[in-house]
Amino acid sequence: MRVDAHDLVLRYGDVTALDRMSFSLEPGKIYGLLGRNGSGKTSLLSVLAAFRKHSEGTVRVDGAPVFENRDVTRRVSLIRDTGETVDISSAEDALEFAKWLRPDWDAALAASLMDTFAINPKKEVSGMSKGQRSALGVIVGLAGRAPLTMFDESYLGMDAPARHAFYDALLADYMAHPRTIILSTHLIEEVSSLFEEVLIIDRGRLLVQEEAETLLSRGTSVTGPILQVDAFTEGMTVLGARELGPTKSAMVYGHLDDVRRKRAVESGLDLGPIAMQDLFVHLTGGPR
């Protein structure tokens, strides 16, 4: 599903959570939504899923307004850590309600994922561990097959093997049933390989919206002898550097043109990609 937001504003009393945010999302991609705590990620996703009514501006999904529009909302799914979709007696009951309310529900996928995450259908959700509740949430999100599916850090409670099982399941199901997926996360390095496009927001404003590859190309690691690295990076924005004996590795921000790349090679320097997380830290302004 296509998403278009224009001058989107959301206020909680005196606090402006979304501040004139505008963007468009093409259908059939996996988007990463990155932002620091309190940047507005949950607020934005809540508006897109009609969990909240926005204060000003417009938000449209496939050209139609979202809030209280059943033709849109029934095709939108947001899974949050708060557990709206799972906090109901047993896991089996949660799946039954999802099956009843979700038009694209895939019961076979849900059953398969229940096995993958070793969740007992008869178990009361209130008696589950944090990781099991999170896993049940992502099962509901994936098996719901909503054309616009969003996960708001809903898998943070899962341990590393379970998270990787989720990433594998998400990618496999996305390949088989392409749809628009938005993943909001703090585990940037762990999930970034899934992103086709990235939105970075800060203080309720959109900082960056780019293809993941384009964003990554904005940063480069420069490795080689200390003097050559220092000479090469002089005047550039250096995000960080590490030294090991006579060798230095510096992360620089900004596009490197062919001339500079050629110069680096001639200086005996190695150029490589840097982590999305390092770019994120730089773009959102470092420690506060």
Partner: peptide
């Protein structure tokens, strides 16, 4: 407290 959030999270409207 319980079913309204469940319904909305599953794409139903408040009216429904």
């Amino acid at each position: 407290r319980q079913f309204l959030p469940l319904y909305i999270a599953h794409g139903q409207t408040r009216r429904e």
